[in-house]
Amino acid sequence: MYICYYNHCKVYCNNIVKEVFIIIRIKFSTGEFAKICHTTKNTLFHYEKEKIFEPAFRDDNGYRYYTEEQIEVFFLIVSLKEIGMTSKEIKSYLSKRSPKELLNLLGEQEKIINKKIKKLKHIKNIMKNTQVITEKALQVEINKYYMIECEEQFLVTTEDISNLSQKDIIYSIANLERLCFENNIDTYNNLGKILDFKSGRDLDFNNYNKYYFRLVSKKGIKSLHVKEKGTYLTFYCAGNENISTIYNNFINFINSKKYEVCSPFYEIPVLDEASTSGSKNYLIEISIKVGNINT
């Protein structure tokens, strides 16, 4: 038995040529094939140019034609493209494809997909947490003190930055952001600052101690800062206000009420460049845990 082709049909002939079996190959023009595969002619031309998917044959006039067997191959290529494989990687697989190679490919791609799913879930959580913070921001009144009961919160922080240069502070913040993203650490996305305060001590309001992200969960985090449960005196101000004046007024208010200071200051933007344009439209939250509230 041998195979020959006649008018784009597979022709099976026995050695004595007593019988001829013809299997009709249904051919599709570029437009027809694109419609079947829910793609465009330009995509087919692009794949042909990259030499990862070419027409089954061309006729005497140079028109491209595809066959039914190619539909499954095309959808495989699309799937591999969607999970991030390059044209070079796809071409390499197609050139040596076999059941064993397919199993190896699917195993490796499953690991990649699971990693991407985990990353996307992390991004989704960041978006959801940002939504919660933004909705809260729209409900507060600027330049007003609030007494807010807070549950225990867990923060992941930079190193102590109080003696670092501005450039090194930026590096420290970048390292913290990379740590959270690469390890899929779910945080409330706004970057906060910690400023230590003890009664009777002068503060440098432009020299913070640490930057932080608030964690959604402390699970799996070995080193973290605990923002204690308790009553926090909280103030909201616009982003373009003089921060030194804000803190001095804050301290004067604490002293006038004879509150006991029980924590550092926590400063965090609840509205920033992600939701508004220009620092004058930012909303900054400053809070500190206080005691002796009823005395």
Score class of each variant (00 low, 15 high):
201 R>K: 15
153 Q>T: 10
184 N>Y: 12
128 K>C: 05
115 K>G: 11
208 Y>V: 10
247 Y>I: 15
159 E>N: 14
7 N>S: 09
97 R>L: 10
70 Q>A: 07
5 Y>H: 11
108 E>W: 02
58 R>S: 09
122 H>D: 12
249 N>F: 02
249 N>K: 08
295 T>I: 11
232 Y>N: 02
83 I>C: 09
75 F>C: 08
223 S>V: 13
76 L>D: 03
36 I>M: 12
14 N>I: 00
295 T>S: 14
268 I>Y: 00
2 Y>P: 08
113 I>N: 08
85 M>C: 15
149 E>D: 13
217 S>L: 04
182 E>Y: 08
39 T>N: 08
125 N>W: 01
290 V>H: 09
136 K>W: 08
200 G>L: 05
117 I>P: 00
85 M>K: 10
92 S>W: 01
159 E>M: 14
272 D>R: 05
242 N>W: 04
131 Q>W: 03
130 T>L: 07
188 Y>C: 00
69 E>S: 15
256 S>E: 15
109 Q>T: 09
198 K>W: 03
292 N>K: 14
133 I>P: 00
165 S>E: 09
210 K>F: 03
149 E>Y: 06
127 M>G: 05
253 F>P: 02
228 E>N: 14
172 S>Y: 07
153 Q>R: 14
256 S>Y: 12
182 E>C: 05
176 L>N: 10
254 I>T: 04
295 T>K: 15
139 Q>Y: 09
122 H>G: 10
179 L>E: 09
67 T>L: 13
290 V>C: 09
96 K>L: 06
274 A>V: 13
237 C>Y: 06
188 Y>M: 02
99 P>T: 12
124 K>A: 10
273 E>D: 15
206 N>D: 15
269 P>M: 06
61 N>H: 11
165 S>M: 05
117 I>E: 07
68 E>F: 14
68 E>I: 12
178 R>Y: 11
109 Q>F: 11
263 S>P: 04
112 I>V: 15
28 F>M: 08
268 I>R: 00
252 N>G: 04
222 K>C: 02
194 I>M: 08
186 D>I: 12
255 N>H: 14
87 S>F: 15
215 L>Q: 08
148 I>K: 09
188 Y>I: 05
254 I>Y: 08
100 K>W: 06
45 F>D: 07
207 N>F: 04
243 I>Q: 06
20 V>G: 01
93 Y>N: 07
114 N>G: 09
70 Q>P: 05
158 T>N: 08
178 R>M: 11
261 V>L: 10
121 K>W: 06
142 I>F: 03
212 Y>W: 05
285 E>C: 08
94 L>W: 03
280 K>P: 02
222 K>Q: 11
274 A>E: 14
54 E>W: 01
89 E>T: 04
261 V>P: 00
235 F>Y: 15
171 Y>I: 04
152 E>H: 06
143 N>P: 03
277 S>Y: 10
53 F>V: 04
211 Y>E: 03
263 S>F: 05
164 L>N: 06
204 D>W: 01
15 N>C: 01
214 R>W: 01
221 I>R: 06
261 V>Q: 06
117 I>N: 03
96 K>T: 07
120 L>R: 13
79 S>I: 02
176 L>M: 08
122 H>L: 05
265 F>E: 00
134 T>D: 04
28 F>I: 06
110 E>C: 09
137 A>G: 07
